[in-house]
Write a protein that binds this DNA or RNA. Structure first.
Length: 985
DNA sequence: ATCCTCCCCTAC
DNA sequence: TAAGGTAGGGGAGGAT
């Protein structure tokens, strides 16, 4: 799957890039399908200055042959490749590992690792002719020979290094081959398609699309790296505990003596941010381009960016007009409007600029601008490609550098964070900006990239300071200054949270800078923006920021979204993609070890007036966006449940697949996997057993004549577990009951077409889901007996729901039952006499045996009451999922009661639901047994817990309520709980 | 009042 | 050609 490619190193094992062992590194290498050999395994190089081959070419060579390319020199960098270094530079370097680039070339040519000494630039041994010598022992040379043989491109094979590793590598390489082969199978379509087959992946219909897209998406990388570093800070903090920071001592001795301390007790928050991050990382290997206007983008620039093929069904003029209209009249986004206005010329590249250098910015180029537009502003703009690995590498170096001094870090993104400095500078006894300068220099030397930092008394002011500091500088918003006066001239859009939309809205009201807002009444702001936004805006305009630094951030949602390359021609292509995306989002969910209770599907649909094809290649064009969500009954991380809900939501949108331009799946209301486990013990037991049972019963037959309630619950479960089955409309409404789409309305038109009794059932179900989840109400809720239920009951009409008053009229009920009995068992003789006599006597509570007796079909009526009670009920439908009916219900109850100190709310609800099903199914004697057993378990619980007593009474109460509704009588129960502590009055 | 859904906005 | 994601905060308006 796409999983590997999407994984940025923040998988469940955490930041493997940073910590991973050698072995893991080799694993990763072996699974790379582009790998030609492992020639340079364990060898790392750093390229200093101009070389031939160039740094980029050397990087390619190293990657393809299993080596490591360092973008900056590290202590463990094995070789430094250079051609000529200035004396000044060399003087302070360890020259024993500076070699010529020719070494790499010769190694590849000879297909073995050569002795590097002849290639040293700064020793006596320097020669131009490499000696063909193996530097190491016999074993190695043998290995090298084998390697040389195995380096043929058609049959790449790992060197037989350490035996185990060799085997593992081999397996992994085989796996990599296997993983790529299905791609080729899709080629079976037509022979005429051959021309397109050779092309790269285009639309989301291609099974490899998702992986390709995420591999190349800058926004995806920005987002996942950001999330990754938030988690990284958490991990570092947890791993660190209360240990000291040794680096502080080192710094203290370096800076000691020359510092006069800040005597004030000011609060210091630092905001640190890399300067035009992507560009800086890209320039590490091309220092000769520093000072030029540079942009990072997918477009290769030059003529490729000014003569772009145009799709016949696209219409740039029309699309531009539409976009411009939206941006100018609805969204007021000047930048985007401008981008469309001047960037949409025919044949100009619509590739976006992810990051541009300050020299490019000076010409008016901005991040996010189209390349075509940027080239008009600056024809000599140089474009460089993305280096996602490099961004991660540098980001780790940045975070690790800061983390040496403190872990009071709030990660904002991969290149930006807030750091609480108050305690740190007090501990170091240094001036705050001295520390910042030292830190920035360390970051620069470790990453090879410049950064800027601002310091203020809160996050807002620190950020403002950074704006002043950029590029490559630092700035302190001194604690003593008049903050109000300082903020007043600041344009509002410089405040965090104020974007183009809000800027425009405020400008309409005559508010442009912080000073304007400072003097505006709260009422006016609130009417403009709403309560909360008004408050924060006003506070920010005064330089006040109450937001604390959040060091350990908890994720609240997970999502996966693709608004590029979505072009389906039919529903099945769409469904296939939805399944892939569901799997993707499920992986992300399990990666963070959480479960979700809400699923939201987001779609982008081509706007009615928009051209069929977007101007931007595979772009979404002008679209309308729609969201729809479904609440799950329980938190889940089951891919099948997620998928079935996603498919259902898509079906509800009822959109033509060919008009879709974007799809996203969001999971929210997350809970911890372990919390869920604790919280829902019973349900987990049920589900576990139903899984097991599913495997055991191979063929699950669908009942021709669905039994009412239980049957529906069961069908729902099947949809959840088996979304592979196509969903037809007729099953959809039935399925929309217990588990899923509680909050989605049923189409009234569909509803109108249903037969009366079925419609009533649907309405009842909907009503049921709108009931509050609170246990009291749910358990005690009055339920109208349904037609369908009645049909299966022996009584022609079930008793109407009884109020408390009528329920307490035993003689009426006894008469009723007697009447039914006599009708049914005419001439039944002695037995029925006994039964009726019994009923008269007990009046209020009926023994389960009686229920058993009267609910048996006529043919089975036996002569003797005892036998009747013992007679087995007809087997429940094979699909019935109520495990309270299973033979091991006692074990399950015992597990529940004994493992939990206090009963869970959700477990009690589950229990009530399952017992209610039993009531409706008339499993009276089982109910009797369950209640008896449960009562005993609670009584004999090691520790007397009133919560359990109350739980039992509540369950008992609910059961009796249901009995009263469906049978007209309460059940005689064997035991009850009495406790002086919690007994109700 | 408080919750829910469906947005919109913002930031990187 | 091109890779227009992701997460969080919050408002409007309706349901309870």
């Amino acid at each position: 799957m796409a999983g590997d490619e999407i994984n940025n190193g923040f998988g469940e094992c955490g930041y493997f890039e940073a910590k991973k062992s050698k072995l893991e590194e080799q694993f990763a290498a072996a699974s790379d399908p582009f790998r030609k050999s492992n020639l340079f395994q364990g060898i790392s190089i750093f390229v200093n200055g101009l070389t031939d081959p160039s740094a980029n070419e050397l990087k390619q060579i190293m990657m393809v042959h299993g080596g490591t390319f360092h973008h900056y020199e590290r202590s463990h960098t094995k070789f430094i490749i250079a051609s000529n270094l200035p004396d000044v530079k060399v003087r302070n370097m360890n020259t024993s590992k500076i070699i010529s680039a020719q070494y790499i070339v010769d190694c590849v040519e000879n297909k073995r690792v050569l002795d590097y000494k002849p290639y040293l630039l700064y020793t006596n041994q320097k020669t131009t002719q490499p000696r063909l010598v193996f530097g190491k022992g016999k074993n190695t040379s043998r290995a090298n020979e084998t390697m040389a043989v195995s380096m043929s491109e058609t049959a790449p094979e790992p060197p037989p290094v350490e035996n185990d590793l060799g085997k593992i590598l081999k397996v992994l390489q085989l796996a990599a081959v296997a993983a790529t082969s299905p791609k080729k199978e899709t080629a079976d379509k037509t022979v005429a398609d051959v021309s397109t087959l050779s092309h790269s992946v285009r639309t989301a219909v291609d099974p490899a699309f998702l992986g390709e897209f995420y591999k190349n998406s800058r926004l995806h990388h920005i987002a996942t790296l950001g999330a990754g570093f938030k988690q990284y800070v958490c991990e570092l903090r947890q791993a660190h505990g209360n240990q000291p920071f040794p680096k502080r001592n080192e710094l203290r001795s370096v800076l000691s003596g020359k510092q006069e301390m800040n005597a004030d007790s000011a609060h210091y928050v630092m905001h640190i941010d890399m300067d035009c991050f992507f560009v800086s990382v890209g320039l590490r290997s091309h220092p000769e381009w520093r000072g030029l206007p540079i942009a990072v983008t997918h477009s290769k620039g030059g003529s490729a960016a000014t003569d772009v093929p145009v799709h016949p069904q696209s219409d740039r003029q029309a699309e531009r007009a539409l976009f411009a209209d939206r941006f100018e009249h609805q969204l007021h986004d000047n930048f985007r409007a401008d981008k469309v206005r001047t960037g949409f010329e025919k044949k100009m590249s619509l590739s976006e600029i992810a990051s541009c250098s300050y020299e490019a910015r000076a010409k008016g180029i901005r991040n996010g601008m189209f390349v075509g537009q940027a080239l008009k502003l600056c024809p000599e703009l140089k474009t460089i490609p993305y280096d996602f690995e490099g961004y991660k590498e540098v980001a780790f170096a940045l975070y690790d550098t800061v983390a040496q001094y403190t872990l009071n870090i709030e990660a904002v993104s991969c290149d930006e964070m807030f750091v609480e400095l108050t305690d740190l500078v007090a501990d170091l006894q240094v001036d705050v900006m001295t520390f910042v300068a030292h830190l920035r220099e360390e970051v620069r030397s470790k990453t090879g990239c410049p950064c800027s930092a601002g310091v203020g008394s809160n996050k807002l002011l620190a950020r403002m300071a950074t704006k002043k500091a950029k590029p490559n500088g630092q700035f302190l918003l001194a604690p003593g200054i008049d903050v109000l006066a300082y903020m007043a001239p600041t344009p509002l859009e410089e405040l965090p949270g104020v974007g183009s939309s809000m800027r425009h809205k405020l400008a309409q009201a005559g508010l442009r800078n912080c000073g304007d807002v400072q003097g505006t009444s709260r009422e006016k702001l609130e009417s403009l923006l709403g309560k909360k936004l008004a408050l924060t805006l006003q506070q920010h305009s005064l330089g006040i920021d109450t937001r604390p630094l959040v060091y350990e951030q908890q994720r609240k949602s997970v999502s996966a979204e693709v608004n590029y390359g979505i072009r389906f021609s039919n529903a099945s292509e769409c469904e296939t993609f939805l399944r892939q995306l569901s799997a993707e989002v499920k992986t992300r969910l399990t990666d963070i070890k959480r479960k979700a209770k809400s699923v939201t599907l987001k779609v982008m649909v081509r706007a009615a007036e928009a051209p069929i094809e977007a101007s931007k290649f595979m772009g979404h064009g002008v679209c309308d966006t729609l969201n729809k969500s479904a609440m799950l009954q329980h938190p889940t991380d089951d891919v099948n449940i997620i998928t079935s809900n996603v498919l259902k939501l898509m079906k509800e949108f009822d959109l033509p697949p060919h008009e879709l331009r974007g799809i996203g799946i969001h999971l929210s209301r997350l809970s911890d996997v372990n919390e869920v486990k604790k919280e829902n013990v019973l349900l987990q037991m049920f589900e576990k057993m139903s899984e097991k049972r599913k495997i055991e019963t191979t063929a699950v037959e669908v009942q021709e004549e669905p039994q009412p309630e239980l049957e529906q619950a069961e069908q729902q479960q099947q949809v959840d577990l088996e979304p592979q089955q196509p969903l037809d409309m007729s099953s959809e409404w039935k399925n929309s009951t217990n588990t899923s789409i509680k909050n989605t309305a049923v189409d009234p038109e569909v509803l109108a077409q249903l037969p009366e009794d079925i419609r009533q059932e649907v309405l009842d179900n909907m009503e049921e889901h709108l009931q509050p989840k609170h246990s009291e109400q749910r358990g005690r809720k009055r339920r109208k007996p349904k037609n369908a239920v009645r049909r299966s009951l022996p009584f022609p009409s079930a008793p109407a729901p009884l109020s408390k008053v009528s329920a307490n009229k035993p003689s009426n009920r006894a008469q009723h039952l007697r009447h039914e009995l006599s009708k049914r068992y005419r001439g039944g003789g002695q037995t029925d006499e006994i039964v009726m006599d019994y009923i008269d006597k007990v009046s209020n509570h009926v023994h389960p045996a009686i229920f058993e007796y009267i609910s048996r079909p006529e043919v089975e009526v036996s002569q003797n009451l005892q036998g009747a009670a013992a007679a087995p009920r007809p087997q429940p439908p094979a699909t019935l999922q109520n495990y309270l009916l299973g033979s091991n219900y006692k074990t399950m109850l015992a597990d529940w009661v004994s493992n939990q100190r206090y009963p869970n709310h959700t477990d009690i609800i589950t229990m009530n639901e399952k017992l209610a099903e039993l009531v409706k199914g008339r499993y009276s004697s089982r109910i009797y047994d369950i209640m008896k057993h449960l009562c005993r378990l609670i009584k004999h619980k090691h520790e007397d817990v009133c919560e359990w007593h109350m739980a039992f009474r509540f369950i008992e109460d609910t059961v009796q309520h249901h009995m009263m509704e469906f049978e007209g009588y309460q059940m005689m129960l064997a035991e009850s709980i009495s406790c002086v502590m919690c007994e109700p009055m």
